[in-house]
Design a protein around this nucleic acid. Sequence first.
DNA 1: GACACGGTTATCGTAAATGATAACATACTC
DNA 2: GAGTATGTTATCATTTACGATAACCGTGTC
Lengths: 109, 109
Amino acid sequence: MTRPTFHDFKKKALRDPGVRAEYESLSAAYHLRKKLIGLRKKAGLTQEELAKRLNTQKSNISRLENVNSKISPKLSTIEEYAKAVGFKLELDFVPQKTIKPHHNRINSD
Amino acid sequence: MTRPTFHDFKKKALRDPGVRAEYESLSAAYHLRKKLIGLRKKAGLTQEELAKRLNTQKSNISRLENVNSKISPKLSTIEEYAKAVGFKLELDFVPQKTIKPHHNRINSD
DNA sequence: GACACGGTTATCGTAAATGATAACATACTC
DNA sequence: GAGTATGTTATCATTTACGATAACCGTGTC
């Protein structure tokens, strides 16, 4: 028998309703940060260069982008970041599906 | 000669690049608030009822929705509001048009 | 090894968002 | 007019995001 992989661990963890709830609630901020990094790199900017555009420091950019960050940024912060890398932020409100999720459904990340 | 109407005033004001910039920068938050109110009403909730769902006070809901408000809410605040009225918040980043705007173009609304 | 580059982390001070309470305005009903 | 419902505004305390500085970790280059 082999050692459990991280994938196995995640699969199992996501079956726990509590863990799953936290995972989903985190996902918005999580995906946001990944998105921001992608936009910055596509714009060919380092954190330091972007920081300069925003009149701030690279450490602050890092904090904002960092997945481990516990902060929930202000709307204006995200907007300014977006603008600095050449994008405009738009907010969409999509109706929540109230469908009970299939009990063995796993997010494919 | 008649008194200048508010519409005239606004039209003129928006020709000023500074004023216009401020107008545009405010518009995101402005539209957001209108959107939020619409979602709440569609859900058939009063501010007080929604406040209860969010474990807060109606005055705080009012502050968040109020167009005159100068605050830039946290992302999580908007997310929780959306969830409480049955919606999910999604962020979209659309490429900025760098086209120079027509010098006499006026926003309708 | 020394250096530069890109990013992370810790810390501290300040500014701003949020929580909470109360008083107020309007409109509507009895 | 008294009472109720909905939303607004002001104020204060608390929490948290953000600004700023510094030290650190790789990685690559010389």
